[in-house]
């Protein structure tokens, strides 16, 4: 079967074609879709799973939290100086730092995960941009290609 390209101007037409294609037994691997904006319905049609990005966020967040707490405790103990009669390891303020670093590392890890999973930056497209503008596009790849 040859590679076929369908272009639509309207989301409804695109979605019905997509539905039709899926019912006709075309596997997800054969489909390549281009969208001008995010259509949640497509994901429902394709029954996509949440994916691994969550784990990037979790790992980042956890390591930020532990790292932050560790940094505070280590530095406080490395030269114990009393301030204001408070204990050397004062957990309440250290939790603030840990929390902030959790957010920071979580965000950064998520972003890194996104770049990895979405395969960005795309080198070919950086130099020679090509997209389909405001059209919805379905590319059905031929088997064996």
């Amino acid at each position: 079967m040859m590679t076929q390209t369908y272009q639509y101007e309207e989301a409804e037409a695109f979605l019905s074609k997509l539905r039709e294609l899926l019912q006709s037994g075309i596997s997800q691997e054969q489909l390549e879709l281009q969208l001008p904006y995010h259509l949640p319905e497509v994901e429902q049609l394709l029954e996509l799973r949440p994916g691994p990005l969550r784990f990037f966020a979790l790992t980042g967040g956890l390591s930020g939290f532990l790292g932050g707490l560790g940094l505070c405790i280590y530095t406080a103990l490395s030269w114990p100086l009393i301030t204001g009669g408070k204990p050397i390891v004062s957990l309440p303020p250290f939790l603030i730092i840990a929390y902030l670093l959790a957010v920071l590392f979580g965000s950064l890890a998520s972003f890194a995960g996104f770049l990895l999973l979405a395969r960005l930056p795309k080198r070919d497209n950086l130099l020679e941009p090509s997209d389909f503008g405001n059209h919805f596009v379905i590319v059905v790849k031929g088997e064996g290609q």
């Binding site: 100086l81 009393i82 301030t83 204001g84 009669g85 408070k86």
Partner: peptide, 12 residues
């Protein structure tokens, strides 16, 4: 004065 110093310039 001590705990508010960010750099331990004031300590006990």
């Amino acid at each position: 004065c001590e705990p508010v110093c960010p750099v331990y310039a004031a300590y006990h």
